[in-house]
Amino acid sequence: MIELKNVAYSYGGGALLSDISLTLAAGSFYFLTGPSGAGKTTLLKLCYGALQPTAGDVLLFGEDVAGLARDGIAALRRRVGVVHQDCQFLDHLSVAENIALPLDVSGRASAAADGDLNELMAWVGLTQRAEALPPELSGGERQRAALARAVIMSPDVVLADEPTGNVDWEMSQRLLRLLVELNRMGKTVLIATHDLSLIRAAKTQVQARVLRISNRQVQLAGADL
């Protein structure tokens, strides 16, 4: 699915990540954790082609991202659902339209998709806010909307950067259940978080693997947390 081979990355100063080799197996469930500033967001960006590695290769669905043209990257983003840490929306469109945006830009809008949209909105608890504009949403509502937008295309991989950063425990459990549900449907899920209790809660529902960034490396954390 996603394969990193001896990948290194630096924003210009010293190396932030170096010599990382990692394979995300299809259909598995991962957490990515590590202290703030360790490079979780950076690693995710490498995984969806927003950043090119300064050394090594990133293969997405077997293709080298370095060889992808801009349209190739665009096509890739339809297969990888991303929840960004700073969720950005089109502020002049309603929440419902924003969530359906990936369908529209890929020309897949349809009546059946509208049904999915309503179901999804209900799942993330935004049915009441469907016609609101994004600036009118609370932080947690924005994150739920971002998650809904990330999965509406039914992507093969879901990458979520702190998807539960702004929501209460109950809502974070709901979002987690949605992600677990997606994983049961065969999708690969990678969640960056430093919320250890979320990881623990997940482990009761799904076979989750935990990747930890420390010392510029990614390590598979032990079964015990």
């Binding site: 801009r70 349209d71 665009a74 096509a75 890739l76 983003r77 339809r78 991303v82 960004h84 950005q88 929306f89 089109l90 945006l101 990936p102 830009v105 890929s106 937008r149 295309m153």
Partner: peptide
């Protein structure tokens, strides 16, 4: 610029 970056993030091609 912000609209364009959001569109890129959700998979819009330059052409779109």
């Amino acid at each position: 610029a912000q609209v364009i970056s959001v569109l890129r993030l959700v998979g819009a091609t330059d052409r779109y």
